[in-house]
Amino acid sequence: MFEILEKERIGPGVNRAVISAPAIAQAHRPGQFIILRTHEKGERIPLTVADKDAEKGTITLVWQEVGVTTYYLGTMCVGERLQDLCGPLGKPTHIENFGTVVGVGGGIGVAPLYPITKGMYEAGNHVISIIGARTKDLLIMTEDIKKVSHETLIATDDGSFGIHGFVTQVLQSLIDKGVKIDLVVAIGPVPMMKATVNVTKKANLPTVVSLNPIMVDGTGMCGACRVEVGGKTMFGCVDGPEFDGFQVDFDLLTKRLAMYKGPELVALNRFRETPRGCQCTFPGGA
């Protein structure tokens, strides 16, 4: 179970893997995530599913190496198996024909945005995708996104590819041009989602964001993933991960995401000193 069937580096520190998980592939709907563990002593981390193939019984995960688990995952090779894979978790995206849907994806957020974009496209929406990254090398899945979008606008912060600027500026120019937009779906780093909501709020465009709070069980049991939405405490894992962007307290989310910064660094340094996983791809290894 949970064998890694394909794996590739798609950007600096960014990986994509296809994993055998037939039951999850069957049940998964856009917007839902999984929780995985790399090994017996590993932590549980949530990752949004970037794609699936129900017939082949596989799911695709895309992740950026930031902490001990994502680094470890980066060293795992085709043929190796994940210790645990649990899902699908969270509520699926509400997909229907809204009219025109704009998907805004920043950095690694393009991965979870892809199945939603695909779902919206297949539901008959006119889909405009705005995807961006800090720099050209960090742009991911642009070809995938293009296939399920009527228009795709690409931006980089440093101007190394596409439009020079932030995704929010691209979105603003669409609004300024008078494009009729019925729904915005924004997924990416917290500052990007917050900035997007600042733009859409002014234009009163309904905006869905997908949040990535720290989780342990992912089934509503522990409450680690508390977020405040409309002044009410909600659990990211079972009430989300998607929420009405206008209502989300992004500042609280930012603070809560930093809760384990110290220990996370300790764990990562320890990992770097005592490598595990498949040594062949370990950074600095053979």
Binding site: K41, G42, E43, R44, V216, Y260, P263, E264, V266, A267
Partner: peptide, 13 residues
């Protein structure tokens, strides 16, 4: 469950 009392031998803080 996550044996955080063994951290950093285990990964969960």
């Amino acid at each position: 469950l996550m044996k955080a009392y063994l951290f950093p031998e285990t990964d969960t803080p």
